[in-house]
Design a protein around this nucleic acid. Sequence first.
DNA 1: AACCAGGGTGATG
DNA 2: CATCACCATGGT
Length: 272
Amino acid sequence: MPPELTLDEFDPRKIMESGQCFRMKPLSADTVETVAFGRRVAVTDLGGRRFRFDCEPEAFEAVWRDYFDLDRDYRSIAENAPAGDAYLARAIGHARGTRILRQEPWETLCGFILSQRKHLKAIRACVEALCDAFGEPVEGTRRRAFPTPERLAALTEGEARLCGLGYRTPYLLAAARDVASGRLDLAAMDRLPDEELLSRLMGVHGVGVKVAECVMLFGFGRLSRAPVDVWIRRVIDEVYLGVSPFEGYGAYAGIYQQYLFILRRDEAAKRR
DNA sequence: AACCAGGGTGATG
DNA sequence: CATCACCATGGT
């Protein structure tokens, strides 16, 4: 019996379009599918805040409950947003239902290394190409897992480049070698304080502040981190007059950042 | 068909 | 430290 439950402030389709993950895709009007942790799940919106997770109950408890951050009270996070911040209030209204996924650090690191100077669609395409070419099979789907560090570390630059990575190819291989060699122990880094985690991640060739912050937020569950990308830079400049508001946003600054990002990006898209 | 994309690096003031 | 050209491909 696939788990069914009632969830507040949960919108899988919005999460899919949020830009924090690159492998979620629609199966139908009310169902999305993703692959992570070597498993596959399909989430169906049944209406009335009811959702079905198409997976084994053990997998739901072992992986997906945590992955989708289902035990966090996003309603109270929205209600406790900094007062007197009209733009943030609008962003919360617009992006409501988006949660911060707890993704695998390795895949998150690679995904955001590849994300630089790419649209969401293009990131998805090259991540999926990497998985198709070098990932292990996953039960219950024809899609494949994200390739292991060892697998990618063994590739030549020419092989990897076939997946459309462009000039990011050496960056990805550098990350793979760091992790495969043990020089970068992602599992152990889970316990590091924020500043040390940040500097370790930035030690990878091709990883700067922005990518490292994204990995912290989306791959290590550091919800206070607020990556500054081009969209957030515009929000800071246009709305907050050049002064970053994130220092005052507290432990969930990363969640508010995500809402601001989505609003600003979607507003720009509407203008075209 | 130009133009730009959830940036980073290395070289120069 | 601030700035800047350049990076390789794919989408629009």
